[in-house]
Simulated scan of single mutants.
Amino acid sequence: MRTLLRLFAIGASLVIVLSFAMFAADQGAKGRDEQLTQLQQEAGTPAPAAAAERQRERQHGRVREVIEDANDFLLKPFVGVAPSSNPWVARSVPALLGLLTWGLLLGFLANLLPQRRREIRDWRTGQPI
């Protein structure tokens, strides 16, 4: 259970970081006018509405959309925490809260779970100590 929880925490953190990196790359590649249009269409926020989700699916490939869908699921509890018209704030605050929750807290919880003790053996005889 401990290993499974730790793997989930690492996987969730990787999904959030990958999704944010792809978002940052998209934002860096677009001009200011395109960013304003994207804000009006709500496609730049995590866990967008259904219409914006379909538009995003048409723009990106299958692998990227799987990562974005997993990110939407992981960040859904944090979307309304910092409402902002700035896409960087709207995206980075939920990502930071998601990393703290899924990565740090679940990793800490995994360390608190009991671990199976290994038998210690004498290196000379191979007998248990």
Rank of each mutant, 00 (worst) to 15 (best):
D69N: 09
V89M: 08
L100G: 15
R116F: 06
V89C: 03
K76Y: 03
V66F: 03
R56C: 04
Q127P: 04
T45G: 10
I120Q: 13
R121M: 05
A43M: 14
A47L: 07
S85E: 10
L100F: 15
G103D: 01
P114R: 09
T101L: 04
K76E: 13
G107Q: 06
L97W: 00
Q127K: 14
R121G: 01
L74W: 07
P77W: 05
F73D: 02
F108M: 15
R117P: 01
Q41H: 04
G80T: 05
A95P: 00
A47Y: 04
R121L: 10
V66M: 11
I67L: 09
E53V: 01
A43F: 11
S85V: 10
V63N: 06
Q59Y: 13
L100M: 13
E119C: 08
G61N: 09
P77F: 04
L109A: 15
I67C: 00
Q127C: 07
V63F: 11
L109P: 02
R62I: 15
V79T: 12
A52W: 03
L112G: 11
R118T: 07
D122M: 01
L105P: 09
Q115M: 12
L113A: 14
L113W: 11
S85Q: 09
I120D: 11
L97V: 01
P77H: 05
Q55C: 03
E68F: 14
V81L: 07
R121V: 09
G107C: 09
L113G: 07
L104M: 08
V66H: 09
R64C: 11
Q115R: 14
R56V: 10
V81R: 03
A95H: 01
F78P: 02
V93A: 03
R118C: 04
T101I: 02
W102M: 01
V63Q: 07
R62E: 15
L106I: 07
D72S: 07
W102R: 04
G44R: 10
G44M: 12
R116Q: 14
I120W: 12
A49N: 13
N71W: 10
R62W: 14
L97Y: 02
L106F: 11
L74C: 09
G107H: 03
R56M: 11
R58T: 09
R62M: 15
P87R: 01
W102T: 00
E68G: 12
S85W: 11
W88D: 05
